[in-house]
């Protein structure tokens, strides 16, 4: 038994969710190898070879891997699989992993298992369905098991203590059917949403994009990331990459502060695994209070600045 983890990175740094995927892979038992495919990824290879639990790092460098296009990475993974015959192939359930692994799976005529939250045995996984309103235990009878891993459900593997050997794998010839043009990443000095210890999120109750400043001020006091409900995104207050929920990002911080969010099931699916949940809403009947550890029925426009001020004390 052996597992391949497809590493996500930007040629400079490993994306944190890969560490969660490595933990999941380690739980299966057997050797864990990581595939790093990029244009110039020596730094990433160095990082990942120190990660505890990784036995081998497979490296493929080629100009065609720019932008991690699935059309280019899929043939590489298939070649790697041919060479090493892994029993499991996995990646983080991020935009990268969700885009890539189903393509690989279809090529192998394998039904993949998306976004797993628990491993019961090497062929049995738990995943959420219906926006987290039910848990499905799935047995995968495929010869090769292919799955993506929900980052918040597995600890990150320690980034020290490993000493994996690295090995070049041959890059396949470019498919050349797709071209990566550009990336526009939202710039922020705040922590990244899915890995932040504290998240402050705003909903339609904020009434405008400008009013999110109240949340940014509070977030800066708490060293928190700022998220939003789908309603706030749909209303155009903030960009979609801030969306927390089943169709956005799944977060599970130590502290989640929901401000002016009613608590649609879709939103709850994205945050209900947070350790402590605070809800601030003027509607005492808002469903968010049913999952909140601490609920404050108040006008957010008064309460949030008050809270920011109180944190100074």
């Amino acid at each position: 038994q052996s597992t391949l983890v497809v590493a996500e990175h930007n040629n400079e740094k490993l994306t944190p969710i890969t560490l969660n995927a490595i933990t999941a892979a380690s739980k299966l038992g057997g050797d864990v190898s990581c595939l790093v495919a990029g244009t110039d990824c020596a730094k990433v290879v160095e990082q990942i070879s120190k990660v505890k639990g990784v036995k081998k790092v497979l490296v493929a460098q080629h100009a065609s891997f720019k932008g991690s296009l699935p059309e280019e990475l899929t043939p590489l993974i298939l070649e790697t699989q041919k060479q090493f015959s892994f029993t499991h192939i996995c990646a983080g359930a991020s935009a990268f992993g969700k885009n890539l692994l189903p393509r690989v799976a279809a090529k192998l005529d394998v039904a993949p298992v998306s976004d797993i939250i628990e491993i019961k045995s090497p062929d049995t996984f738990v995943r959420t369905i219906y926006a987290g309103n039910a848990l499905s235990t799935v047995k995968c009878n495929e010869a090769i098991k292919i799955f993506t891993v929900r980052g918040t459900s597995f600890e990150a593997a320690p980034t020290e203590g490993g000493s994996a050997a690295s090995e070049e794998v041959a890059a396949s010839s470019p498919a050349g059917v797709s071209e990566w043009l550009e990336q526009n990443l939202t710039k922020s000095d705040r922590p990244e949403l899915t890995s932040a210890k504290v998240v402050v999120s705003g909903g339609r109750g904020l009434k405008s994009g400008e009013n999110f400043k109240l949340l940014y001020d509070l977030a800066d006091k708490l060293n928190a990331a700022v998220g939003a409900s789908r309603a706030a995104v749909d209303a155009g207050y903030v960009p979609n990459d801030m969306q927390v929920g089943q169709t956005g990002k799944i977060v599970a911080p130590e502290l989640y502060i929901a401000v002016g969010i009613s608590g649609a099931i879709q939103h709850l699916a994205g945050m209900k695994d947070s350790k402590t949940i605070v809800a601030i809403n003027k509607d005492p009947e808002a469903p968010i209070f049913q999952v909140a550890d601490f609920g404050l029925v108040a006008d957010l426009f008064k309460a949030v600045p008050e809270m920011t001020a109180a944190l100074n004390k």
């Binding site: 394998v110 909140a292 404050l296």
Partner: peptide, 24 residues
């Protein structure tokens, strides 16, 4: 299909906590 759903469960329910009166 080589995927088999063994069982479907309700997710663990989160208990509602307490209401607080003021920001302080």
């Amino acid at each position: 299909s080589r995927l088999e759903v063994l069982r479907v469960d309700e997710p663990p329910q989160r208990q509602a906590g307490v209401k607080v009166e003021t920001v302080d």
